[in-house]
């Protein structure tokens, strides 16, 4: 036993310095085996991470005649139907929720880009008394978690008459410290000469900002826009707090309302969640290039 396993052991664990595998053929076989194991692991993780979405999609497409509880699970619906989507839309105004989410998310992307860029430009390119204080103020907003101040933000929103409005959902994150910081860094990375040339031509501050500087930070703007959009679309806690009448709900609050209040039919709930997540996944796969750039470039350090 020991004698027979001995050579195999040395083959698995070559002596330090020795090249893995004795012959080129064996080395090649090992590489192929390693590649196969690698792909098997990737596929395993694929199932773990996308499987739940697939199962939800499958559930949402199954008709009432088909059991969703069967085991072993049947991923492919026997008779795919969109009836559950119609039923979700009959139960709660799911398209209206989608529109509400879209308004808030697009609005947030726009305000974060515009106001974030204006403040970022002032911090990066203008000298004025109090600049350091302004910068510190934006940094401070980044270390105050929303969860800590949510009660007071609600009180403020109520005194401003913003409760139960989409504007109320949007405003607290209309310009985040992170957006200002990212855009400030974007402007600082630009060569100053271009803008100085524009200044000599007699362009005002606003024109310099709008015509020269802003188009040059398009990459950063894309990242800020995507992050703001996705954050607003996915946000749950604040819309849950500030919205009180069901017709004003955003999708996240709306589908929780659908599942919590109206129905125990998993097919309908699944349809609701798919309406909330599919547009976003489509957007993500279309723009994933920018996404990874943004995540990799220090956006996470907020």
């Amino acid at each position: 036993m020991t004698v027979r396993t001995e050579p195999r052991r040395t083959a698995l664990r070559p002596a330090p310095g020795a090249p893995p595998g004795r012959t080129p053929a064996r080395a090649a076989a090992r590489r192929v085996a390693a590649r196969i194991v690698h792909y098997l692991l990737l596929l395993g993780m694929l199932v773990v991470l996308i499987g739940p979405f697939a199962w939800q999609l499958s559930t949402s497409l199954k008709g009432t005649a088909e059991s969703v509880f069967s085991y072993p699970p049947d991923l492919w619906p026997d008779d795919p139907t969109l009836a559950n989507y119609a039923k979700a839309a009959q139960t709660v105004p799911v398209w209206r929720y989608g529109l509400n989410s879209l308004i808030v998310a697009l609005g947030s992307a726009l305000t974060n880009c515009l106001f974030g860029a204006m403040a970022g430009y002032a911090l990066a390119r203008m000298r004025f008394r109090g600049r350091k204080v302004v910068f510190a103020a934006f940094l401070a907003t980044m270390i105050i978690p929303f969860e800590v101040i949510m009660v007071s933000v609600f009180l403020t929103s109520r005194s401003l008459g913003l409760v139960d409005t989409l504007l109320g959902v949007l405003l607290p994150t209309a310009v985040t410290g992170l957006s200002v910081l990212l855009l400030r860094n974007g402007f600082r990375a630009l060569p100053v000469e271009v803008e100085e040339a524009a200044m000599l031509d007699g362009a005002g501050e606003w024109q310099r900002f709008w015509r020269v500087a802003l188009p040059s930070v398009r990459g950063t703007l894309t990242v800020v826009a995507i992050f703001s959009f996705v954050f607003s679309w996915d946000d749950f806690l604040w819309p849950l707090i500030v919205l009180s009448s069901p017709r004003n709900y955003t999708l996240t609050v709306g589908i929780q309302y659908l599942s919590g209040t109206f129905t125990a039919d998993q097919r309908v709930i699944a349809a609701g969640t798919m309406i909330a997540v599919l547009p976003l996944l489509a957007l993500f796969f279309a723009l994933q290039r920018f996404f990874f750039r943004g995540v990799g470039e220090g956006a996470v350090k907020g």
Binding site: T111, L114, F115, G116, M118, A119, Y121, A122, L123, R125, M126, R127, F128, R129, R131, V134, A137, F138, A140, T141, I144, V148, I149, S152, V153, L155, T156, L160, L171, P172, T173, A174, V175, G177, V180, V192, E196, E205, F209
Partner: peptide
């Protein structure tokens, strides 16, 4: 680099600063 009017930088920063004050720093103090 020389601001002609000292109010200009503040005008640029105003919207973001307003949001930060009303919806973050103010509520934190509160």
């Amino acid at each position: 680099m020389i601001g002609r009017n000292p109010a200009i930088p503040w005008l640029f920063a105003a919207p973001a600063l307003l949001v930060a004050l009303v919806f973050s720093l103010g509520p934190f103090a509160n």
